[in-house]
Simulated assay, not measured.
Amino acid sequence: MHLFYAASPFKYLKHRIDVLDKENLICKYTMIEGDPLGDRLESIGYEVKFEATSDGGCLCKMTSNYNTIGEFDVKEEELKEGRESTIAIYKVVESYLLENPQVYA
Results as ranks from 00 to 15, higher is better:
67 N>L: 06
47 E>T: 10
33 E>F: 03
76 E>L: 04
68 T>A: 15
2 H>I: 08
10 F>V: 10
26 I>L: 10
86 T>F: 05
32 I>K: 01
22 K>A: 12
37 L>V: 08
82 G>N: 14
9 P>M: 10
44 I>T: 06
101 P>A: 14
71 E>D: 15
71 E>I: 11
31 M>E: 11
49 K>L: 08
49 K>G: 08
69 I>L: 15
9 P>V: 12
24 N>G: 03
102 Q>D: 13
83 R>D: 12
98 L>H: 13
37 L>M: 04
55 D>H: 04
91 K>Y: 03
75 K>Y: 02
14 K>C: 07
30 T>D: 00
78 E>D: 14
40 R>E: 03
88 A>R: 05
101 P>G: 13
18 D>F: 00
60 C>G: 07
52 A>T: 10
4 F>P: 06
95 S>V: 01
89 I>Q: 08
13 L>D: 09
52 A>W: 05
7 A>R: 08
26 I>N: 01
76 E>T: 03
96 Y>L: 13
56 G>I: 03
32 I>C: 01
84 E>N: 14
2 H>S: 01
41 L>K: 01
55 D>Y: 05
53 T>C: 14
1 M>T: 06
28 K>Y: 01
61 K>V: 10
64 S>H: 05
51 E>K: 14
50 F>G: 11
93 V>K: 02
103 V>I: 11
49 K>R: 14
28 K>S: 03
4 F>C: 13
89 I>F: 09
4 F>L: 10
21 D>S: 03
28 K>M: 07
27 C>G: 07
46 Y>H: 02
54 S>G: 10
32 I>A: 00
90 Y>W: 06
94 E>N: 12
23 E>L: 13
62 M>G: 05
36 P>M: 04
56 G>T: 06
93 V>C: 11
14 K>V: 09
4 F>I: 05
83 R>C: 11
82 G>V: 07
47 E>R: 05
8 S>V: 09
3 L>Q: 08
28 K>Q: 09
31 M>F: 02
79 L>K: 15
26 I>Q: 02
98 L>D: 11
58 C>G: 13
17 I>M: 06
29 Y>I: 01
84 E>Y: 03
71 E>W: 09
62 M>D: 01
27 C>A: 12
11 K>G: 15
103 V>H: 09
31 M>D: 03
76 E>K: 03
6 A>P: 03
74 V>F: 08
2 H>P: 01
82 G>R: 12
21 D>W: 06
63 T>V: 10
8 S>D: 15
66 Y>P: 02
71 E>M: 13
54 S>L: 13
8 S>K: 08
58 C>E: 07
52 A>H: 07
29 Y>V: 01
88 A>C: 01
89 I>D: 05
70 G>H: 11
44 I>A: 00
53 T>W: 12
5 Y>E: 14
